[in-house]
Nucleic acid binder design. Structure first.
Lengths: 355, 355
DNA sequence: ATCAATGGTGTTAACGCTATCATCGCACAC
DNA sequence: GTGTGCGATGATAGCGTTAACACCATTGAT
């Protein structure tokens, strides 16, 4: 093949080898297993590499060694503080173990998800982390047939694909509404974006409904405005609609702190007192939640920990050890009661149990 | 070489070729340039590929074609809503043009930045986008010697490395403080994280100081609590310190809406009226800014547009066209005055000009 | 003196794909 | 019948790296 030497061919290990007066293999060794190279040679190679600003081609390395050195994560949206913290946990822990993280953001779209999964698999990751599940059979099939370790996170599936580090969205929904019931509320609404692409939100809603039913309360107060990812404005519109249609509503569980902030805003605009007339609860315990006026009751999730643990499981699995703690971890969650539900900062933990 | 057939070798184009009864080259052609393959063959190959769930190895493809098909972005932190929107703009536009985005988050650390840059270059991206500059000479040298198109964003350097899509952080700082001066404030403070790794924040501070000086006002009210990325709690602490030491302060420009929220909170706690006693301005126009109580005056940046434009420049450059609009775009910014500086939603635009 | 073990280095053959060129019909024109 | 052009496919040679093994001095033990 005669590829014409294009304007800017990059430096290869061959260039370094020539400059250092050694074989190309010695260059590779110097970089990857310096202890196998004599100090004198090592020094020569290192200085040659530095002089040329040599940066090894990782694609070529992966191809040859059959080890890509990276792990992929597929998530619905980077615009979600919680997911982002999980990504941080993954990234930090993986980096410490010599892996890099490939991020695949599917923007809450099923089509993107499939295309993205395909492209991620094309980079031959050594493991895949799913933040909150695959949403098409095609994607599931693709992943199932690729011989790659998988960690599902942010939910608690009945039939795990492989490993899981998460918590039960259903339980979150139920626990939150239970706690509102406990406070004496009886006309409790739910506000979330229940499109086909937010199965997690839907599960929380199911939990919410279950709580209402077992308490014998009405379960008709709900609205599904907007679509994931949830925006503040969705909360504004949703609150407006709900307050119009269900003026008797005395508590509202929101699918996100974003939505809850919008609700808070709309209540302020209408002069509806929070929490006296309406108690409000969010989800996610976003940074701003405790600094709002009134401070916002929310659900705190072990977001960072999820990423960290998932990474540990992956590292252990790849190196052939027994998966670190256990291949299925339910990390639970905490409900943080604040002023928006009439409290002064108290905390309720709901934790772990195998499925 | 005798690599032992490991447990799970993945499907290659050779497998597909055999199943379809064609040469391996025809498989490649079918996937990349289907119009050069006869319909009958194409159908056979496609069905074989589907049957085997074939996912081409992109690393091998890149290596062979010398085109990686991706663009890298290096940013100080993903935990920054504005940067994230730029990433969205990049990702969307690049995807439409057949490129993928590699994200490198350096967590506001100089060391990470260098290591990350090295690893990104190792993947041979066809272009690199920098969100807010390189912070070590080593990194600059590395990038300068790699023959890769570069787009700098989120600032406005005196000596651009290559292409730039941004705005002047200095101008932002000056414009904001000018507008506070115009409102009659005379004892204006600045609160930001001024570590060595937030040159942008530092530039805004310089702009702020310049504004004060040309108005002949005192410029000693400032505090540098915390380090990037800025947290709400840094605002709380900073405000506490400033209010203690400079009770006469009548306006405060913050380096981030996060910080500003913390300040707002601390003022509430101390019973310091906003904006009557203290006017507060943030930076970034985060989602929540207009929904706070009082709503927060801030600086809105063309975050998404920056990414979009950077991607367009890159696509044009790679395909050899003249860079889309111009290789140096100053996109300007807008100051949004809200209640926290005593206004009712007005907007001031500061736009474009070549350096 | 002989052999085995050892440490350092080089040689070779892949890894899975694509660029390039060669080949092979087949139609159409003269 | 020969040539020309064209559309479809195959053969070959890499891309830049690493795994595996071969090799060659040393060294130390026998």
């Amino acid at each position: 093949m005669s590829r014409k030497a294009s304007k800017a061919r990059s430096i290869t290990s061959r260039d370094v080898a020539e400059l250092a007066g050694v074989s190309l293999m010695t260059v590779s060794r110097t970089l990857r297993t310096p202890e196998l190279v004599s100090p004198a040679t090592r020094k020569r190679v290192e200085s040659a590499a530095r002089k040329l600003n040599y940066v090894p081609d990782l694609a070529a390395g992966s191809l040859s060694s059959q080890r890509s050195g990276h792990v992929a994560v597929l998530l619905p949206s980077l615009r979600h503080a919680g997911f982002l913290r999980t990504v941080d946990g993954l990234s930090d822990t993986l980096r410490d173990n010599g892996y890099h993280l490939l991020i695949g953001d599917c923007y809450y779209s099923v089509d993107q998800q499939l295309e993205l999964l395909r492209m991620l698999l094309g980079r031959r990751p050594e493991a895949i982390v799913l933040i909150s599940g695959l949403d098409s059979p095609a994607a599931q099939d693709l992943l199932a047939r690729a011989a790659v370790p998988v960690v599902e996170t942010w939910h608690w599936p009945d039939d795990p694909h492989n490993m899981v580090v998460g918590f039960s969205q259903f339980d979150v929904g139920r626990a939150m509404t239970d706690s509102l019931i406990e406070k004496g509320h009886t006309r409790i609404g739910f506000l979330g974006a229940l499109g086909p692409f937010d199965p997690n939100g839907e599960q929380r809603r199911q939990g919410h409904l279950a709580a209402l039913r077992s308490a014998g309360l009405r379960d008709d107060i709900q609205s599904s405005v907007g679509k994931a990812p949830m925006e503040i404005e969705d909360g504004v519109k949703g609150a407006s609609w709900l307050l119009e249609h269900f003026p008797e509503m005395d508590a509202l569980a929101c699918a996100s702190d974003m939505t809850a902030l919008g609700v808070l805003h709309e209540c302020r605009r209408r002069g509806c007192a929070v929490p006296e007339q309406l108690a409000i609860a969010g989800f996610g315990d976003f940074d701003f939640a405790q600094y709002l006026q009134p401070s916002l009751t929310s659900v705190r999730l072990p977001s960072y920990r999820i990423g960290q643990l998932a990474a540990q499981l992956i590292v252990a699995t790849i190196s052939g050890e027994a998966p670190s703690p256990a291949p299925h971890c339910n990390l639970g969650f905490e409900i943080i009661h604040r002023q928006s539900t009439g409290n002064h900062d108290s905390l309720l933990s709901y934790s772990s149990s195998a499925p």
